[in-house]
Nucleic acid binder design. Sequence first.
DNA 1: GCTTTTATGTCGATCGTCAAGCAAAAAGAT
DNA 2: ATCTTTTTGCTTGACGATCGACATAAAAGC
Lengths: 401, 401
Amino acid sequence: MSAQGLPGTLVRPSPPANGAGEVLGIIRTQGPCSRAALVDLLGVARSTVAQRLDLLLQRDLIVAEQGGGGTRGRPTTLFRFNHARGVVLAADLGVTHAGVAVTDLAGTVLADTSHDLEIAAGPRHVLDWLVQRFTELLDRIGMDPSRVFGVGVGLPGPVEASTGTPVRPPIMPGWDGFPVAQHLADHYRVPVLVDNDVNLLALGEQRMHWPDSEHLLCVKVATGIGMGIITDGRLARGAQGAAGDLGHVHLADKQDYLCACGNHGCLEAVAGGAALARRLTERGLPVPDARHIIGLAKQGNTEVADLLRQAGRLIGEVLATVVNVLNPSLIIITGDLAQAQEQLLTGIREMIYSRSLPLATRDLRIVVSSTPGSTGIVGAAAIVLDRVLAPAAIDRLVSTG
Amino acid sequence: MSAQGLPGTLVRPSPPANGAGEVLGIIRTQGPCSRAALVDLLGVARSTVAQRLDLLLQRDLIVAEQGGGGTRGRPTTLFRFNHARGVVLAADLGVTHAGVAVTDLAGTVLADTSHDLEIAAGPRHVLDWLVQRFTELLDRIGMDPSRVFGVGVGLPGPVEASTGTPVRPPIMPGWDGFPVAQHLADHYRVPVLVDNDVNLLALGEQRMHWPDSEHLLCVKVATGIGMGIITDGRLARGAQGAAGDLGHVHLADKQDYLCACGNHGCLEAVAGGAALARRLTERGLPVPDARHIIGLAKQGNTEVADLLRQAGRLIGEVLATVVNVLNPSLIIITGDLAQAQEQLLTGIREMIYSRSLPLATRDLRIVVSSTPGSTGIVGAAAIVLDRVLAPAAIDRLVSTG
DNA sequence: GCTTTTATGTCGATCGTCAAGCAAAAAGAT
DNA sequence: ATCTTTTTGCTTGACGATCGACATAAAAGC
């Protein structure tokens, strides 16, 4: 009716807050809701709830379904979040390995693949390769690329999350300062979120298994050692996106261990998977990589078991300090070496519980990840979903498109 | 016109978001603004800005003043936040000492006093005493108690900030679980915020001197050693409000030092002011308390200087780990011993810069507080002002009373 | 088949906001 | 002295989100 640009035309350039996003948020987190339940939760009138639901139904963001009666009276219609409304592209890029997946809007993996990939091949090569994998996965499930809501990528190094750009990564030659998010956004025209892979592990663990834990640490012990920090339910990335660098914490009494970073005495140089493998090889027990260490430990090799236990103690010693400083309620151990539960976890627990204050450890649980391998992808999808399904973003989607 | 409760009466029980709080927030943070400036900053229509300003003027929350011309045309009227609209009661309670103040709504101290006070006298005694001091200060500046917007209190121990209750404090006998905030709120009928004193130091430093630092640590080195953490501009308190416990971090090679907490090898037991004083006394150099150590160091006593330097190195060693983990852009050293800049600060810097990664330390500044003594009060006022002047709270104030 | 109970749909009224227009005020420019 | 420019003050008609109230729909129990 009203032509754009004419005098008198009413366009609303200010935030289009119509409350639809708030309703979707509740439905997403609380599960299927009836109108009455939404009225209670939101404290707004029935008619308002109905109008907002209409908007969401129009946009296919929710679907109505028959609610089980139980009580007499007209049966309740429940409104469920339409997970299948769109998809998210998620990737977890490691140093030599890449996990690639397409998830629905609940973060459930619809299709995924796993490849060997040298991150050192440089950003252009890797990202072009990644786009091809995404295209293949979308083809496989018959999903049109126009239904992609966003892209999430985890990288093995510090990332400035606000811009999606690696910041002086020690092990990603050619990636320093490359605008990863911008590059992918130019291709897909949707929000692209890039973050450190361990941050995404922490977020994935929280979303999959520990939604009530607002303060947790996720420690990845593999070739190297890294940590993702969640405080007050939010990722703590630090001033330059370099927070959680557990691997290069300095151990005063291990000056004779040279680290790949050039320093002496880094935790990673003593207790990291690469360091353990090298030490075992030097002792005449050839171990190609970190994963084989686990096999030997499970076969009952006491030398390997002792080494893992000692590594756990060292990691636990550093974590005891971190526990005092951050007071988390949960520590999740993940990564290849985490599977050595009896040795590594025991060593870690031993030091944390003996060295941290009773108040800090009273309600502290220390567990091993139950879903190694899939957590990073879930975290990558989660940062994207947090962005593109945020109330403000939904309000915008409902108002405009 | 419309009587409450009659059918047809439209009362709006839902969030009274009228945008007035948003306007006040800009005026508070950006300084005096003209209407035109607010239109630019908010992106809303002139008429809307005018209406919101009218509401704020009606409630005396802002005052209009003549803006300097400079440009031709009708002179701008600027709107300034009315700091004098009300006051905040702020207290910084230490173990043996208390700072008490009344501030305006900008956090500027209007009146303050300082007293010796044993926190061990218990919550009822101390809080009754505190209420008397507040009353005296309000009398002194002729301020009616009805103008009190809120109360902020810092306590020397872990506090569950959401409820304002101490949680198993090691040095506050009788305070464990006492509902401090509730107790004061029953008296004043305004929001009462209670937090750990070092958290308030960190917040005060940020607000007074480093408003652009979103990631900072504030380390207090006095009788004991504590730390307040700000990440992403927000205080990190941990799961139980016990975060920042630097004093009881365990040092592997200092097992022979017994700490007051019962453990061995705590940083505080080696490098805290009480520990240093005791050690000097044992060596035949009687030192009554931490503050006298500074005097000796400034007189050129090399033994004391060496001891302080060594304490700084130990604190720096622990902080190097914290820098790797949290990646702050600023560390502020405060507390009585912080005045020994040449010795303590140098020792701290020495270890942090040599032991943390270049990325983490590249943009890291380490400074000594320029306003020891007044920072805690400013922080106590700040948590209150953040609450009672938050946009939502202002919207409510403008709508209802 | 009727009543009860619960859920849903529709309506006019109100409030905050919008763009636009016009008058007033004050200072530099002509 | 007059014009122009800039900013404010005030009003208007419209729109969208929300509200409460009433009317309608659908199932269980009598």
